[in-house]
Every structure is written in C-alpha cells, then in structure tokens.
Design a protein around this nucleic acid. Sequence first.
DNA 1: AAGTGGTCTAGACCACGCG
DNA 2: GCGTGGTCTAGACCACTTG
Lengths: 246, 246
Amino acid sequence: MGTTQLEAAPEPKYWHLKTVISEALDSEFAVGEILPNERELAARFGVARATLRQALDQLELEGRLQRRRGVGTTVAPPRVGVDVSTTQHAWPGAGEDTWQSVDCAADTAPPAVARLLDIQLGERVHIVRRLRVTDGRPVAAELLYVPASSVPGLVDADATDGPTRARAVLRALRQLDLDGQDRAVELGSARADDARELDRLPGSPVLVVTTRYLSGGGTAAVSVATYRADTCRLTFGDSGDLAMAS
Amino acid sequence: MGTTQLEAAPEPKYWHLKTVISEALDSEFAVGEILPNERELAARFGVARATLRQALDQLELEGRLQRRRGVGTTVAPPRVGVDVSTTQHAWPGAGEDTWQSVDCAADTAPPAVARLLDIQLGERVHIVRRLRVTDGRPVAAELLYVPASSVPGLVDADATDGPTRARAVLRALRQLDLDGQDRAVELGSARADDARELDRLPGSPVLVVTTRYLSGGGTAAVSVATYRADTCRLTFGDSGDLAMAS
DNA sequence: AAGTGGTCTAGACCACGCG
DNA sequence: GCGTGGTCTAGACCACTTG
C-alpha cells in the first residue's frame, strides 16, 4: 500500500549529532577531558554552530557534559547521588554537616509559600538561607521559611541578621515535635541568586524540592531547595545507594 | 573608586523577556488561552524569533506554557501532583488502576540496569512496558526489568508476548515478599519511544525515577519510569498533597 | 491551503577565565 | 589579549494540524 520507504527518517540533525557525540564520549574520552571547541566541532560535523549547540545542550541536560564560559566543554563525571530521604534529616539542622547556614532575614513570604504555610499573605516569616555542599562543591541552595509564630521563643528584637540568627532559628525549630513531612520534586530553572550560589548561569535547569514540615497539627516550616539538575541525582533510599552510570 | 554604575546590568534579553511574559501570563491570560504566534510576539517585542523562543523555552520548562506544532502556544494548567511515594505501591501492579500494562518482551537488560539488578550482562530479563495515565492524559512511561530468575514460576515457553504476558509477570512478582526499595530521581531527556507514548517531542525534559525492588536479600526488579517534566510534580507525601501554584 | 511551531544557517558581538 | 562559551540576528525551509 503506497510507498515502502523504510522509516521515512526525517530525524533532526541535532538528534543524530547528539547520538554520535554521546557514543564518542563513551569510547574516546575520559572524565574531565576537554572537548574541541564549538566552532571546531561544528566545522568537523559540517553543521552550523547553533545546531551543534543544540546537541551539546541536551548532553549537558543529561549530565554528560559540563560547559564553562571562557574555559571550554569537558566530560562530566557521573552524577552524585544526594540523599533527600525524610529519615535523614528529621528537622532541618539536626546533625547536619551537609548544610551550612548562610544568612537569615525577616520578611514576608511569597504567595505560593504563604499558601503552603497556611498563613496570611503579609505575615512575617524568618527566611533562612542555606547551602548544601558535597565534596566541596555546592549542590543545592535552600530557602527555609519559618513563620514567626512557629518559633515564638525567638525575640524579633534580636535583630542580628546573618548566620548567627539563622542558627538561632534552626535551634528553636528543633525544639518542636515533628509530626511528619510532605515532599515534592519538580523541574525548574534557577533564579539569579540561586544560580550564583550554585555556580551556574541563571535559568539553568534545577530540581526543586519543596518540603513541608508538620508540627502540632499545622505547617511549622517550608523549605524550598534548589538542586543542580546537571550534577545531582536525588535519592530516597530505604537502603543503600543505587548507582546508575552508563 | 571607579565608576558608580548601578548594576551594570547586562541582563540577557531573553531573561528579561521571560520575566515580562511571565507577568503577562499571570495577569492577562487564562489557563488554556492561546498566545499570539511566535513571529507576532517577536515583532511585538522587537527581537529575533530565536530570542523570543529562548524565553518561551524556559517558560515551557517551568510548566507555564504548552506548545504544540501546527496548533500554537497555550497557557498551561498548574502541574499535577503525581504520587510516587513507596507506600503507595508496594509492588508494581498491586491495586493499580493508574498504570496500564502495554507490552512485555524477553530480552537482555542494558548494562546500567544489569548492574542494578546485579546480574550478568547477557542474562535474559522480562521487560514490561507500562503507561501511567492521570485524567486521561499519559504522564509516565515505564520499563520494568524482571530477571527470569526472580519469577521462576513463569514458563518462558509461554511465549505470548504482549499485555497478557505483562500481567502474568506482574502477578508472579506480587507473590514475592518485598523487603524494601530504593528510589532515585534525576533529570533526563525523553528517548524517542518514550516521547511518542507521552505525546512529546524526542529530547523533551523528563524526570526519570529509578526504583529498585528488594526481595530475598537481592534485587528482584528494577523500574525506570519516565515522567513528563513539564506537567508533573512528583510527590512523596507522608500526608496530603501539597499544592504549589503561582 | 494556510498557519503554527520546529529545525537550520551563517554570520556578529559580548562576557568571562586565563596567562 | 586571546580563546572560550553565551547571546542575538534575519533570514529560510520543514513538519504538523486544522479548516
């Protein structure tokens, strides 16, 4: 019935390119090795630089490549598994060396967070900024929203912003009973400030982990953690770590 | 001390564009509404179409927009929360209406999966293909790898491939004792076949959920589930659902 | 057939890291 | 200063959906 063409195959060039480069990566390059520059690669494959970049974009998204302006494109190491399971950190700041408190401010929560916290829109919250570091590399930036009503022990006049205050808020939080927590993961793009902390460009893809900490029948705090999607694999293990390299 | 320029602000055009459009989306458009076409928008903002597209790309990545070739760009509904918590489905196929078995084949597992299953590279496994549907829309495509040794009751000569066999494998699996499971989430790009099932273009961003089912001191099965990143928010709730709309 | 988003080109200039 | 990746342009054609 009609033409017997096998496949019709109008496969996009960048898709084919991606496959070719991906295979070359497996067989001919070592982790950390630097690739020829984009103009060189484009010429070698006989395509425009934009097309070549489309292929590299995907490979970077998949965590196979790492690109740094002014430096070059290198072969990325396998993604690191970062534990995000609830059992690991009952309260933020309980036995943690992975997170380091950076700053703390008193402000109003954005509408979306206010809804999660079930508070009025103008209500003041402590906003703790933390950074998660693994192997000396930042992997996540977090904003922890704590309504003033959750930590009444904390005097607001204790106006020293900064790390000291951040730790004080966490300390107060730890004294509450944790009833449970909700968690959600979705794809996002890095805000400018997160991008800076994570050593990425604004808009780079990130995994956003939203956690709601429940205590005393209500939501005591909400954490919005932004993980680098290129380098991280989020693990929720009951048991050991599962490695998934190619 | 040098120039007192405030900000220096070489903020990329597409970034600024994205912000402007995002705000317009909040205030001037309803969910499902169709936007002006790309050429029109580009002209209106006085930029090249490629630049406009860079902004739309990001908004689509964030789940704010939905683009369909030949149709147009529409305002996306808020992401749906899909439950991926371990408590929900002890074994794949236990009390499930969310997943529908599509197919089953007997083949060898790819190296990465073989490593997770802790089996030899050439060893034969059952590969069950399933589709997760929510509100009539496909949200995830799964490949479930079950080593023949995990379900010895299943006769290989029972060679009917297809849904019937898929259900037989799941039935056999349910009779094992589940000791626990590992789970990991990472960013990926859709393979051609997954993309087709999910009604997306190849390469579109997806959230890959890898689950390892443990039984009898070993790994009885491995599931690789590919979720649409644009429309899905993966939830791991201890309790209710957490909504995070703008 | 017309209109949409998707792909591709061949250029240009800019921001950044490094020597 | 030089080489890198990042941004941007102004076109062209293709694949797809719909009336």
